[in-house]
């Protein structure tokens, strides 16, 4: 069980390493803007499949570094490296593990795994036994309606009418 937990922590760590890779590609020709707004000045047009580095997100916009030039592109105009290439090269499930970084950076992840990154295993969730005290505690944090309304006013959140079918 401990080994299994370590293995899962190991995997979580590997994906945390993957998170550090901010590489993305434009999924169509798109404008690099100087601000996160549609009416911002266009710095340049990035052709489809331009490699960029993601540095920040803000609403419908993503800040990128495109070959040394910083700017904003629309959130929907980026794609992220997929595991498809790995599947093509390795095939099957082995490629899944390699796509997740399995077997790479072993020394680094072993170190991090021992620092105690905790995951939540399928066994944990299947064998869960109820903790009534924890539930009561969770419920003590509920917000009532006046509190939520005050919170919204503090944040200048103004309600909008939109229907949904």
């Amino acid at each position: 069980m401990i080994l299994r937990r370590l293995a899962i922590a190991f995997f979580l760590t590997l994906s945390a390493v993957a998170w550090g890779q901010e590489q993305a590609f434009t999924n169509r020709s798109t404008e690099l803007k100087d601000r996160a707004a549609p009416d911002a000045a266009t710095l340049k047009t990035l052709p489809e499949n331009t490699e960029v580095k993601v540095t920040q997100r803000s609403g419908g916009w993503t800040r990128v570094d495109a070959g040394g030039q910083q700017g904003w592109v629309r959130v929907f105009h980026l794609r992220f490296p997929t595991t498809a290439q790995a599947a093509e090269s390795g095939g099957g499930l082995g490629s899944l593990t390699s796509a997740l970084g399995f077997g790479k950076q072993r020394s680094q992840t072993t170190t991090i795994a021992t620092t105690g990154i905790r995951g939540l295993s399928p066994e944990d969730l299947k064998n869960a036994s109820p903790d009534a005290a924890a539930l009561a505690k969770a419920q003590s944090y509920r917000a009532d309606k006046p509190t939520a309304e005050r919170f919204a006013r503090d944040g200048k959140l103004s309600e909008v009418k939109v229907d949904y079918q």
Partner: peptide, 8 residues
């Protein structure tokens, strides 16, 4: 970004 998009 975190998952690598291909969604293992």
């Amino acid at each position: 970004q975190y998952k690598g998009g291909g969604d293992a």
